[in-house]
């Protein structure tokens, strides 16, 4: 067996870094919703793809820059997220039942996507779809780099917000003990709607980034569920930085596995890492 070259390893690691950033970006809103709202929002994946399709449509029909579509798409999904969470609150849906409810919403969104754009593959064409530059011996694709920058910015921004602002502290307090937080004047209901909207808007951002690099099909919604859930669980529920860090660890591990051994071993990596982490990490009390 010949050893892979340093360039091959570095290029593969870079590829893993980029796809890991996307895992983290999709997982960001999912993890916050799960950890802070106690809603396991499977519809997050459907929101991601619905946003990707909307971006595709807006770019195809108007020719505007894909990132500019966020000006319309992010507020729209914020409102959708608020609406969905209002329903969850209104009917006092438990975390387990939220899984069922949002699975139903996912199926409805998938059917709607298929009805509008058909089941066939759609590819967003943008002026930087094929843009890349060379960094030493490595090729750096621009759309993936954008995804990485967006993921880093949003993850660190939300981490800072949750850690250092009153709003963040109120959100964390409400998640930890809602009645006590309310006793201190935290409007848990309004905050949870705000957070649910933000999570859905984050799904929209992830969707736009997804559309920059991947071909879209309605059934692809489910292709991301396993690995993104693994990233969220490894990164910690309610954590802003965790899913990104875990996503990158998974992405790079998978990529290096593909570079060194049979690529068919790569999917084993994310779940092996997850199991190992769940077994070995210190128990939180």
């Amino acid at each position: 067996m010949t050893l892979p070259s340093a360039t091959l390893l570095a290029q593969s690691a870079l590829s893993g870094l980029f796809v890991g950033a996307l895992y983290g970006l999709i997982g960001l809103g999912l993890g916050l919703s799960w950890g802070l709202l106690r809603t396991i929002n499977l519809a997050h994946f459907a929101f991601t793809f619905a946003a990707a399709y909307l971006c595709y449509q807006l770019v195809a029909s108007t020719g505007i820059d894909p990132l500019l579509t966020l000006l319309a798409i992010a507020p729209l999904f914020f409102a959708l997220g608020v609406g969905l969470h209002w329903l969850v609150q209104r009917f006092d849906v438990s975390p387990l039942n939220s899984l069922l409810l949002t699975f139903g919403v996912t199926a409805i969104i998938e059917a709607a996507i298929q009805a509008i754009w058909s089941a066939d593959f759609r590819r967003l064409e943008s002026h930087y779809a094929q843009a890349k530059f060379k960094l030493g011996a490595l090729f750096v694709p621009v759309p993936e780099l954008i995804t990485l920058v967006v993921a880093l910015t949003l993850s660190f921004g939300l981490w800072a917000l949750l850690k250092h602002t009153d709003l963040g502290k109120a959100l964390r307090a409400a998640a930890q003990d809602a009645p006590i937080a309310a006793a201190f004047g935290v409007d848990q209901r309004a905050l949870s709607l705000l957070l649910a909207g933000t999570c859905a808007a984050l799904a929209a951002v992830a969707g736009v980034c997804l559309s920059l690099s991947f071909t879209l099909a309605p059934s692809q919604i489910y292709a991301w569920v396993g690995v993104v859930f693994a990233a969220v669980m490894m990164g910690g529920l309610g954590s802003a930085l965790g899913p990104l860090a875990a996503g990158i660890v998974i992405g790079v591990s998978e990529a290096l596995t593909m570079a060194v051994t049979a690529p068919s071993w790569a999917p084993i990596v994310s779940f092996t890492l997850l199991i190992a982490l769940l077994l070995l990490r210190p128990v939180r009390t």
Binding site: P4, S5, T7, L8, Q11, S12, L14, S15, G16, F18, V19, F214, A223, W224, V227, G251, E254, A255, L256, M258, A259, A262, P263, S264, A266, P267
Partner: peptide, 20 residues
């Protein structure tokens, strides 16, 4: 000779190995 599981998302490393 390389094999991958159906549903693979990241083809970057496979492409790098072919190029190599």
């Amino acid at each position: 000779f390389l094999e991958w599981e159906f549903g693979n998302r990241d083809f970057g490393p496979i492409a790098a190995r072919i190029k190599d």
